[in-house]
Design a protein around this nucleic acid. Structure first.
Length: 623
RNA sequence: GCGCCCUUAGCUCAGCCGGAUAGAGCAACCGCCUUCUAAGCGGUAGGUCAGUGGUUCGAGUCCACUAGGGCGCGCCA
């Protein structure tokens, strides 16, 4: 069970991409040589120009030749007053060049000011070079985004490398609850984000259908089977699953087997009941996932790994590397388990790969531990072509991360990488009060109930409004509020408002084509208000955000970006309230209106592009 | 006891491989609006980034230690 939990972890050492593993950038601004994807990131274009300038200065002897430019950045300064793009080049080159950063900055300013895209260049602070770009650059950015549609922001950063994202992996013993939902949504959105960033993504679900808990499930099902045949079962005994979701399964089993297994010993029916129960539970979970809009490409079965001998094979592989031995572990410090006793075990040398202790692979009854199957599973993933793996787990599995990463290192000879995203607890609230719909103790609110109450779009978005490793409050009332402090509403409203303007425009200018590509072709230099340019600038940051969020494996950044973009759009709209001249639609000036409609369409496009990463359908009208 | 994670404004949280004066929403305070395009709008105030020390030209960000909180700690998954 990897579904939910409580303590957190940062992405840390398991990141998939190395720092220097930079994407290939288009060399020039020239459209003819642009790659089909990843064409429109203005920051990359300028970074290329800056690097080229440094190389030119090297050739001219004004700077040492062959300077390492890998740490040079081109990014928006925090302070808008500092310009559109800021580079740290002078500071990171200073040491190697044995020059004062401000002198290097001066050299760069002189060269960069000559670029057609640059309207002003200046040095600032300890050696920053700040660039201001001409308005036509921003018009071109807007035109590009309108032409691209929701594909805007697509990147080839991943260069088609394969990534496996494993998420949900809830035990097939009951319906999904809200804790599972977080992992499901985080995994699903992360997968989409990586796909947008140019990775070849496979979405995977690991079915834990081999452990002791599925035997418990089978026994619980047998109880419900007896109940369905008329027995009074009374209280569900300790150690069995009490949920009444097993009743339909009991009835189905009664229908299928009649009274055949009513009095029969467990050994007669266990395997058959287990199989039927797991199938029924998986069907239920898959239905939960469908309602949440979460999909997987592969469902991998733990039982099947065993059946195909892959567990034995994986451990044989490790044995061949002398990574498995029989030994006795130190007793854990602190509270000892009651029945602890020193005993020789089959152990994996996890300490060689950074873990704190070596980890057991066999239980005392001789069967494999969960870890042993998981080793086989990750080896299987690697052999299927995934050097890059991401697992999304509940935070209560934090103690398991090191050993799994150790195993992946051992299995792949260091070639493979595993990043584990731990999802913290979801606190379900209703109007600020803890909400536990438990009819009896221990009953979780099911995901299905929550989805039925607020809708899948809301569940998905809210689950992504926090870092995965921070706890998340989910208030069933607040998430439906129509106000600025409800990010789902606020972002959706921006999209709806944009479409509202477009609908008005269609009435006002019946002949005007309002689709993205058409608007991309309109004359955009009517956009002159600083707030309008600022909005374009913000939208032009979308491709950059996609890449950084994908690199960090942090889909929640998309939520914050969209919220900020929505705020800027609403702000501009509100300005039009006071200053009539700033309204998007000006009846007597179709040219101006068309330019502003391009802006409006752009906002709708970027919002839709972002929501698509979340699997959230943008609305065109608030109801 | 050990390991991992967390600690940023009164509250809930952002802060992009270390970068310039640390941001947003809510709450608070002060104004405005009341149909003009759609569910209000604008502004003010609020911070020893838990603490101490270190690395660095530069630390909320990296390192060490301390305090508080969470999770985990052989044969559960």
């Amino acid at each position: 069970m990897r579904g939910q939990g409580a303590a957190g972890d940062r992405p840390g050492g398991g990141r998939l991409h190395r720092r220097n593993d930079r994407p290939l950038c288009p060399r020039r601004i020239s459209a003819a040589f642009r790659h089909a994807r990843d064409t429109m990131n203005i920051f990359k274009i300028l970074r290329d120009d800056i690097v080229k300038t440094i190389e030119d200065l090297g050739r001219q002897g004004k700077l040492p030749a062959g300077l390492d430019t890998s740490r040079v950045t081109a990014e928006p300064p925090r302070e808008a007053g500092h310009g559109d793009i800021s580079t740290n080049a002078a500071m990171v080159l200073a040491k190697a060049a044995a020059m004062n950063p401000r002198d290097i900055a001066q050299l760069l300013v002189a060269e960069l000011a000559r670029l057609p895209a640059v309207s002003a260049a200046e040095t600032a602070g300890p050696g920053f070079v700040n660039l201001r770009l001409t308005d036509p650059v921003w018009y071109a950015q807007l035109a590009d985004l309108l032409a691209a549609g929701t594909a805007y922001g697509d990147s080839d950063m991943g260069r088609g490398r394969r990534v496996n994202v494993e998420y949900v992996s809830a035990n097939p013993t009951g319906p999904m609850h809200v804790g599972h939902a977080r992992g499901a949504v985080v995994g699903d959105a992360l997968a989409s984000l990586l796909a947008k960033a140019g990775f070849d993504v496979t979405r995977e679900y690991y079915i834990n259908d081999a452990g002791a808990q599925v035997d418990v499930l089978a026994r619980s099902a047998h109880l419900r089977y007896r109940e369905a045949l008329g027995e009074v079962i009374g209280e569900i005994p300790e150690g069995l699953y009490p949920g009444d979701y097993l009743c339909p399964l009991g009835r189905a089993l009664a229908e299928r087997f009649g009274r055949r297994y009513l009095e029969a010993p467990e050994s007669d029916w266990l395997a058959e009941f287990r199989e039927a129960a797991v199938a029924a539970m998986m069907e239920m979970i898959k239905e939960d996932l469908v309602r949440l809009g979460v999909r997987h490409d592969v469902f991998a079965s733990e039982r099947q790994l065993h059946a195909e001998g892959k567990v034995a094979a994986a451990l044989e592989f490790l044995t061949g590397q002398d990574l498995i031995y029989t030994g006795v572990l130190e007793p854990p410090k602190g509270k000892l388990p009651d029945d602890w006793e020193a005993r020789p075990q089959t152990l994996f040398r996890a300490t060689r790969f950074g873990d704190d202790v070596d980890r057991p692979l066999r239980k005392s009854d001789g069967s494999w531990t969960y870890f042993a199957s998981d080793i086989a599973y990750h080896l299987d993933k690697y052999r299927r072509g995934f050097a890059h793996m991401i697992d999304v787990w509940g935070a209560d599995h934090g103690g398991y991360v090191k050993r799994m990463q150790a195993a992946v290192k051992a299995l792949t000879g260091g070639d493979g990488g595993l990043d584990v995203k731990l999802c913290q607890m979801v606190n379900l609230l209703k109007n600020g009060e803890p909400y536990k719909m438990s009819k009896r103790a221990g009953t979780f609110v099911t995901l299905r109930e929550v989805v039925d109450e607020v809708g899948k779009e809301v569940v998905r978005f809210i689950m992504l409004t926090r870092k995965n490793d921070a706890q998340l409050d989910f208030d069933l009332v607040k998430v439906l509020e129509q106000s600025r402090d409800n990010p789902v509403f606020y972002v959706q409203y921006a999209h709806a408002r944009a479409h509202s303007v477009l609908r008005h425009a269609a009435e006002m200018f019946p002949g005007l084509a309002l689709d993205g590509p058409s608007l991309a072709g309109t004359t955009l230099d009517r956009l002159t208000d600083p707030a309008e340019i600022a909005l374009i600038r913000q939208m032009a940051g979308w491709p950059r955000l996609v890449e950084s969020a994908a690199e960090a494996h942090e889909p929640h950044r998309v939520a914050f970006y969209l919220y900020d973009l929505a705020a800027a759009f609403h702000g501009l709209w509100n300005k039009g309230k006071d200053e009539v001249a700033l309204r998007f639609l000006v009846a007597e000036d179709q040219g101006l209106s068309a330019a502003r409609l391009a802006l409006v369409r752009g906002v709708a496009t970027v919002v839709a592009s972002g929501l698509a990463v979340f699997g959230v359908q943008p609305v065109e009208e608030m109801r």
